[in-house]
Design a protein around this nucleic acid. Structure first.
Length: 470
RNA sequence: GGCGGGUUGGCGGAGAGGUUACGCAGCGGAUUGCAAAUCCGUGAAGACCGGUUCGAUUCCGGUACCCGCCUCCA
């Protein structure tokens, strides 16, 4: 079997992947802060590392991969929504309303990411359910001199960890020279970051040796990954914007808390998303969520396809044109594989697509190889390969659901064929052309030949428009 | 100021030191009542300037432009 090679941000090289324990390959991906709908950029790590998860399951077996992706549900924006709802007269305590908001957002997240064809991780820990582990880790860091308490805050002492910032190639002094760090009187060093901070009386908080408070952002991931995956695990991934400070701080915390362990062996970072050539932002008016696209009628698999067309390490541009092309390509492949019965699906994925994925998740190359399989007319292999990258799993169901529509279409086909036979004799095609135009408008492909006519639903097939033809 | 990513044919987007990427669009043809779909064929590239080399779009150096991070934003 081909080796999997992955670009490791930590070593700045592409390395052959060798799991610590092939019976339990472990990966951790930084998940969302659940304060609102996921925007399109949030979908990129989900899709990219879903492909990695699928690849690892393919190679090591579905039961031998553990994928953890957290939910950060300690956040001021969540609190704010809850407070606003309470002020507007919503029933329940503030704590209940906060929990409700998180639950609601998590539900949305699941709905949206499911629609993109992303498998659910094996564990989706919520920060609020791991507070004791965080407290324990912080206590350990204080005991070993890597952290200190000041005015109800606990801060990590960055000068106590010589390799601080190495992941992103920064030195502490470089960063201070950048001079955009928060200066707080209780910090020994401007780069020291918060592990624990006090909480206002009217905001959620947890009892701790340092008083009632809440955890800093970075300690969450360190505590949860440790609890669910252990001191050392194989892959830690996330967006490149998290490389600093989030991942730098995670490394500092975890390495200092467990000095003998390696923590994450491989660090992977996906590049950012742009929209029509520009950064997605509310001020530019090009900000939208995954749900916005789904509601506009862009299928999740189309979004997935567009994302996978660009290698994860490169900036990716979302455009309408790409979505349009993706839709047509997927439709073509769906048609091409429609006759492949479930039982005949091959279990072994063809080398070409698999090999592309093994080369640092080269999904772009994988897609071009799917095109090749399509051109060769190898429907079995095409479908098997599609499933490896997360497409086509529900296509058979779709086609079954379409049976009712197919019957309607067949009726039209018979009538249309008859009409055309007469037209061929009379040379008057006006009625035929009229009907054809309407069929096309309903998204039906009209195929005519000497043998007769065939009506096939196209990518934009709309049965409702067909009804009007009666 | 520091750190990092990008620049490939009309558009999207890969690999490889020398040989066709691939897809979309275009063009020519087959097919068609006309189309669509399909099939066959085909032109077109690597920001700029140097260097290494028999040979670079691919390696090295520099320049330009775009983007991100250094502000709990994936």
């Amino acid at each position: 079997m081909t080796d999997i090679r992955l670009y490791n941000t930590k070593t700045r090289t592409k390395e052959t992947f060798a799991p610590i324990d092939p019976k339990n390959v472990r990966m951790y991906v930084c998940g969302p802060t659940v304060y609102d709908r996921a925007h399109l950029g949030n979908a990129r790590p989900v899709i990219v590392f879903d492909v990695l998860y699928r690849l690892l399951r393919h190679v090591y077996g579905a039961g031998h991969v553990t994928y953890v992706r957290n939910f950060t549900d300690v956040d001021d924006r969540i609190n704010e929504t809850a407070q606003n709802r309470k002020a507007a007269g919503a029933a329940g305590t503030l704590e209940e309303l906060i929990r409700e908001r998180s639950n609601e957002t998590i539900r949305w997240y699941h709905d949206d990411m499911d629609a993109l064809g992303a498998l659910r991780p094996d564990h989706e820990p919520r920060a609020t359910e791991f507070i004791p582990q965080m407290v324990a880790m912080i206590e350990g860091l204080i005991a070993s001199g890597h952290a200190y308490e000041k005015e109800g805050h606990v801060l990590f002492r960055v000068r106590s960890y010589a390799e601080y910032g190495k992941l992103s190639g920064r030195s502490i002094d470089d960063m201070i020279a950048g001079a955009r760090v928060e200066v707080a009187p209780f910090k020994e060093d401007p780069m020291d970051f918060v592990l624990w901070k006090p909480s206002d009386k009217d905001l959620p908080g947890w009892d701790s040796p340092w008083g009632r408070g809440r955890p800093g952002w970075h300690i969450e991931c360190s505590a949860m990954s440790h609890d669910l995956l252990g001191e050392s695990f194989d892959i830690h991934a996330g967006g490149i914007d998290l490389q600093f400070p989030h991942h730098a701080n995670e490394i500092a915390q975890s390495k200092c808390a467990h000095p003998k362990a390696e923590f994450a062996k491989v660090w992977m970072h996906n590049e950012m998303l742009q929209v029509e050539g520009k950064k997605m932002s509310k001020s530019l008016g090009n900000f939208f969520t995954v749900r916005d696209l789904l509601d506009k009628g862009v299928p999740g698999e189309v979004i997935r396809f567009v994302f996978l067309q660009t290698h994860y390490s490169k900036p990716m541009d979302w455009t309408e044109e790409k979505a349009r092309q993706a839709k047509e390509t997927l439709w073509k492949w769906r048609q091409q594989t429609s006759h492949v019965s479930v039982r005949k699906r091959p279990s072994v994925t063809p080398d070409s697509v698999y090999a592309a994925l093994c080369d640092d998740l080269n999904t772009s190359l994988a897609i071009s190889r799917l095109h090749q399989l399509s051109a060769q007319g190898d429907a079995d292999e095409l479908l098997a390969s599609l499933e490896l990258v997360g497409f086509g799993e529900d296509w058979q169901d779709d086609l079954r659901n379409d049976m009712a529509n197919m019957r309607v279409l067949l009726a039209h086909e018979a009538r249309f064929g008859e009409l055309r036979q007469h037209a061929l004799a009379s040379k008057d095609f006006s009625l035929v052309d009229q009907l054809k135009a309407r069929l096309l408008a309903a998204g039906v492909e009209v195929r005519m030949s000497k043998g007769g006519v065939e009506l096939v639903p196209g990518p934009d097939f709309d049965p409702a428009k067909l009804e009007a033809l009666k």
